[in-house]
Simulated assay, not measured.
Amino acid sequence: MDRSLAYVGMTRHREAATLFAGADDFTDRRAGRLVDHGAAPYEHDPKNGLSYFATLENDKGERHTIWGVDLERAIAASGAQRGDRIGLEHGGSQTVRLPDGT
């Protein structure tokens, strides 16, 4: 089901509406308990350069690692500690120019 079908389904009832959805439909890879964060080779591949990561664990015990340029600052500014429940939000991006012009 997508947003449009949900809207139609929720606005065409006369007396009552019941919505059923699986919990997996609401699983967010960017929210959960902070289990680890720091700098490591991107995607933990030793061939890659260092990048900052945050690993979150959902209520099912599944872990997801998010990589991002500004994660270190965001986590420090929030005061989040390992074990805290957090949510991460992508606030935009900015094009950068490398020294070689690319």
Rank of each mutant, 00 (worst) to 15 (best):
I86Q: 06
R97M: 10
R73I: 09
P99H: 02
A76V: 09
G87A: 14
E89G: 11
E72A: 11
V96G: 12
E89M: 10
D84M: 02
V96H: 10
G87P: 01
A74S: 15
A76G: 04
R85V: 10
A76I: 12
L98A: 12
A80M: 08
A76M: 02
A80N: 12
T95H: 00
S78W: 10
Q81G: 02
E72Y: 09
V69C: 02
G79W: 01
E89T: 14
T95S: 10
V96C: 09
I86D: 07
D70C: 06
R85G: 08
G79Q: 02
Q94K: 14
G87D: 02
A77G: 04
L88F: 04
S78N: 02
G92E: 06
V69N: 14
R73E: 13
V96Y: 00
A77T: 13
G92L: 00
E89D: 13
A74T: 03
E72N: 12
A74I: 02
E89V: 13
D70K: 09
L98V: 11
V69A: 13
V69Y: 11
G83S: 00
Q81N: 11
G91V: 04
G87S: 08
G87E: 06
T95F: 01
L98R: 15
I75N: 04
Q81R: 03
Q81I: 00
R85N: 09
I86R: 07
S78V: 03
G91N: 07
T95W: 08
G79Y: 04
L71M: 01
R82P: 14
A76F: 08
A76E: 11
A74N: 08
G92P: 05
H90M: 10
T95Q: 13
G83P: 13
A80G: 07
S78A: 03
I86Y: 13
S78D: 05
G79K: 00
H90C: 13
R85P: 07
A77H: 14
Q94F: 13
G79T: 01
L98W: 08
P99L: 03
D84L: 02
L71P: 12
V69Q: 10
A77S: 06
G79F: 00
G91H: 11
Q81A: 09
E72S: 08
R73Y: 13
A80C: 10
R97F: 04
A76R: 15
L98Y: 15
G83A: 09
G91L: 12
I86K: 07
G79S: 05
I86L: 04
D70P: 05
T95G: 10
Q81D: 15
G91S: 12
G83H: 12
A77E: 14
G87H: 04
Q94M: 08
D84V: 03
I86G: 11
A76K: 14
G79E: 02
Q81W: 01
Q81H: 06
A76C: 03
R85W: 15
I75Q: 00
Q81L: 06
I75Y: 01
E72L: 05
H90S: 03
H90F: 12
P99G: 04
Q94N: 07
G83T: 08
R82K: 14
P99F: 03
L88H: 14
A77Q: 15
R82D: 12
H90R: 05
I75M: 01
D84G: 05
G91T: 11
G83N: 07
D70L: 05
E72D: 12
